[in-house]
Computed example of a mutant assay.
Amino acid sequence: MRNNLALSARNYFGEENLDRVHLLRKNTSWLEAQLTHPGTVFLPFQNLQPFLSEERQLVPFSVHDLQVKGLSVAPVLLGIREERAYFAVDVSETNYKPLAIGNFQELREATLQLPRPDSALLAYAKAMLHWNKQHQFCGVCGAPTLSKEAGHMRQCTNADCQTSHFPRTDTAVITMVTCQGKGLLARQASWPQGMYASIAGFLEPGETLEHAVAREVQEEVGLVAHTVQYHSSQPWPFPASIMVGFTAEVESTNLQIDPEEIEQARWFTREELKDLVATGEIKLPPALSISYRLIQDWLTSEVD
């Protein structure tokens, strides 16, 4: 039987590595104590890029290292790891210059050099800072909002509204499509030459995840899925999504490609795809993506 928890943990950004201390987010005295505690770790971001060492490693800042005024977004509590509180801090609109050796770097590019627990922590931090930045005004009445519950809720300041806003993620499904021992990969025109990946698309309102898989497969390549099985999931903070991975068996290999979505789609046997990747004719998605994991798991499986 497939261990989906283990599979999700194998995906980049999917490893749970801290206690999110949900109840303590509302404890103002505890939060105030943590914000001034010398053991608390602060992770500064600039334009949603984390500060990393020149070797692309996480740099923990203490309260003494991070003396910043004029933050547009209050520090966001991430949780407790190894008995230390972790906060994400957006310094984008300040003149703060870290004294540590390093720089602000794009997480997508640095992930493969980071330890997996750190990449997951930074992905979480980036997603939370992005949400806070995007919701500084109420979506109901337009009034300013205030950070509450350590950055996990924003409260409308309009006394006649006072709507509470909570973080949201955009759900996308991504699928390894198979038929009669072959796997289907597709590419978009904007991708690097030779790169192919799994079929993907966003979940629509009123739709189950399984129906979204079947719809995306039918819309993009004109195939009918008769078996859809959950594989694993992956947080994807670029900027704020959750990728839900599936496998799907379809009835035939006759493709009807939607040219607005797909430039090309191809069927491959396992050996054919391995050979084409080895020669460089076909490029797979980056190793940090769940698409890469879906393809690799199919390539190493002997069961169709």
Results as ranks from 00 to 15, higher is better:
residue 105 Q to T: 15
residue 45 F to R: 04
residue 177 V to M: 04
residue 53 S to G: 14
residue 170 D to F: 09
residue 109 E to N: 13
residue 13 F to N: 04
residue 141 C to P: 03
residue 296 Q to K: 11
residue 216 E to T: 08
residue 280 G to F: 13
residue 14 G to N: 00
residue 159 A to E: 15
residue 172 A to E: 15
residue 115 P to M: 02
residue 34 Q to H: 06
residue 70 G to P: 08
residue 123 A to Y: 04
residue 245 G to A: 15
residue 30 W to Y: 14
residue 215 R to E: 04
residue 107 L to R: 07
residue 199 I to S: 05
residue 142 G to Q: 10
residue 214 A to V: 04
residue 187 R to M: 08
residue 243 M to C: 10
residue 170 D to W: 06
residue 32 E to C: 01
residue 256 Q to M: 02
residue 162 Q to Y: 04
residue 149 E to A: 14
residue 200 A to L: 12
residue 114 L to E: 03
residue 202 F to R: 11
residue 40 T to K: 05
residue 36 T to W: 03
residue 30 W to C: 01
residue 304 D to Y: 01
residue 138 C to F: 09
residue 167 P to D: 03
residue 56 R to Y: 13
residue 196 Y to A: 11
residue 39 G to Q: 10
residue 161 C to A: 04
residue 136 Q to W: 05
residue 163 T to Q: 15
residue 287 A to I: 12
residue 54 E to G: 14
residue 142 G to W: 00
residue 97 K to W: 02
residue 211 H to Y: 07
residue 135 H to K: 07
residue 30 W to G: 04
residue 137 F to G: 02
residue 114 L to Y: 06
residue 205 P to L: 09
residue 189 A to Y: 11
residue 195 M to Y: 03
residue 132 N to H: 01
residue 195 M to F: 06
residue 35 L to D: 00
residue 80 I to M: 15
residue 48 L to S: 05
residue 255 L to E: 10
residue 9 A to R: 15
residue 40 T to L: 03
residue 256 Q to H: 15
residue 254 N to S: 14
residue 155 Q to W: 11
residue 230 Y to W: 07
residue 47 N to C: 06
residue 291 S to Q: 06
residue 215 R to P: 05
residue 40 T to M: 01
residue 18 L to I: 02
residue 90 D to P: 04
residue 53 S to V: 03
residue 110 A to K: 06
residue 234 Q to T: 05
residue 71 L to T: 11
residue 57 Q to H: 12
residue 284 L to G: 12
residue 112 L to T: 15
residue 106 E to H: 10
residue 216 E to L: 00
residue 238 F to G: 03
residue 21 V to S: 09
residue 30 W to E: 07
residue 10 R to C: 11
residue 56 R to W: 14
residue 77 L to K: 06
residue 203 L to D: 04
residue 122 L to A: 10
residue 279 T to K: 09
residue 297 D to Y: 02
residue 4 N to L: 12
residue 24 L to C: 07
residue 89 V to E: 09
residue 86 Y to S: 03
residue 56 R to Q: 15
residue 175 T to Q: 03
residue 31 L to W: 01
residue 202 F to N: 13
residue 124 Y to T: 13
residue 273 L to E: 09
residue 252 S to P: 08
residue 18 L to G: 05
residue 62 S to F: 03
residue 62 S to K: 08
residue 37 H to S: 13
residue 259 P to G: 06
residue 147 S to R: 02
residue 152 H to T: 02
residue 223 L to V: 06
residue 157 T to D: 10
residue 301 S to H: 05
residue 77 L to Q: 01
residue 25 R to N: 02
residue 53 S to A: 05
residue 195 M to T: 10
residue 44 P to D: 02
residue 226 H to Y: 13
residue 133 K to S: 14
residue 288 L to N: 14
residue 145 T to V: 10
residue 273 L to K: 01
residue 219 E to S: 07
residue 185 L to M: 12
residue 257 I to H: 01
residue 60 P to C: 12
residue 240 A to P: 01
residue 10 R to V: 05
residue 90 D to I: 00
residue 198 S to H: 03
residue 3 N to T: 10
residue 174 I to G: 05
residue 166 F to S: 11
residue 159 A to Y: 06
